[in-house]
Design a protein around this nucleic acid. Structure first.
Lengths: 243, 243
DNA sequence: GCAAATTTGTCCGTATGTATC
DNA sequence: AGATACATACGGACAAATTTG
């Protein structure tokens, strides 16, 4: 019998729980400093290895942030873990089946459909003008697949949900967008017509919001994802022409 | 100069990337075995500490799963990281502000609103009967706050989205449900009337689906979350009676 | 049921890289 | 530049869990 007793749990799990409890009980905020590794070892009675592994676990969840040679701090609590997790799942499935990517597009559309009413009621003309300006910048990026397009597209969708005043919705929306953007390039072959249709869809989205027509908004969103769905279907056929 | 050179990146990051690349290139699936720690050390030229920390990072994202004394395997790629991350954020905010919980309820309702049409068109009478049976079991769990309620509630919402045939939607839905269930108890004071209203709302949701009325579905979902919102507002007042 | 082999969990000591003052 | 504080990385040793003969 080494000491009290570990029950059945792993030490680094307990350390991880202790660190989280420490943050909660002291009501720390993102950026606030945490004890050093040595302090944690002494306080929690664990070796550096266990403490470090626990910290790395929390780091992956963005609950703590580690700065080399500086210290350990409370993390930003972003959704980076969701992005990394979903991205890997998407990449792993894109080899044989594009099911995950297809599901993800469904979720994005579902999400925006659900926001239709609130977006229409809460966006003012200032927001709409900014959205129009973003759309104007979309096709001008070059002959086609300039990576400036994706940045403008991201800004568009971010601004679309920003006025909802719900930080979580914005973060989830951007997380889904990020995952899609990382996984989708494996679809290859994005035609010029696709881009034109996409720009038109964005313009129709703004138009529908400006006119306060929920049905048009939903329709424009559906048209926004139509070329994406078509590319996924084509990629699926390329891989298993059977079914 | 020890060897080639690490450039500027962290070694465990590179190890982490290598493990992910290994899974992707070999098209491994959840449950498939990965090389042992010793093998990874030899193959990647890193110490056991670095390999272990990298594995722990991937473990937190459910990309790998580690079984003590058995081996390391490809993880289930679930959304457990999202649950843990969002849960912690919610717990951290419940001390002063219930903003995160409020946002989360918004997201859940938004999500179910967006699914309205598809749920109505794709649920058959068999699903509806099962949903009704679940609702019947809801109030019978005891005098009130029996934890059997939450299990039935979870099953209800799981079954509601299951027929959509989109695994990601189901997992996200359950992830949001899990986070809410863990964070919400901090609201305290759940009245008997709240439970009655909640059961009624569930019944109205099924009724709306059965009758194919989207508006009624959306209304029933809103009523489902009404008592929750009220409790959040009350908790907020308890903490800062000023604003 | 026991014992050996394999694999992960934990600990310690040491050296190095990085940031701050 | 030097000193200090901190995280990063290494290697070896032993403990604990699991499987297999």
């Amino acid at each position: 019998m080494t000491e009290v007793r570990v029950g059945r749990s792993l030490l680094r799990q307990e350390v991880s729980e202790s660190i989280k409890r420490y943050i909660l009980e002291n009501k720390l905020r993102p950026g606030d400093p945490l004890p050093t590794e040595s302090d944690l070892c002494a306080t929690l009675g664990a070796s550096r290895s266990s403490v470090r592994e626990a910290v790395k676990t929390l780091n992956a969840l963005d609950i703590v942030e580690v700065r080399h040679g500086h210290g350990t701090y409370v993390g930003r609590l972003s959704l980076s873990a969701l992005v990394e997790s979903l991205t890997f799942r998407g990449l792993l499935s894109s080899g044989d089946d594009f099911r995950v990517l297809s599901d993800l597009v469904d979720v994005r559309e579902l999400f925006e459909r659900g926001m239709a009413d609130r977006i229409i009621s809460q966006l003012d003309s200032g927001h709409l003008d900014t959205l129009d300006a973003l759309v104007d910048r979309m096709p001008a990026q070059g002959t086609g697949d300039g990576d400036g397009f994706v940045e403008v597209d991201r800004a568009f969708h971010a601004l679309l949900v920003e006025p909802l005043g719900n930080e979580l919705i914005g973060q989830l929306s951007m997380a889904f967008w990020d995952v899609y953007t990382i996984v989708a390039p494996h679809l290859k072959v994005i035609t010029f017509q696709d881009e034109v249709d996409t720009v038109t869809a964005h313009r129709n989205i703004v138009k529908a919001v400006r006119e306060g027509r929920t049905e048009d908004f939903v329709k424009a969103v559906a048209e926004h994802y139509a070329p994406v769905r078509r590319r996924i279907a084509e990629a699926r056929l390329r891989i298993e022409p059977g079914a």
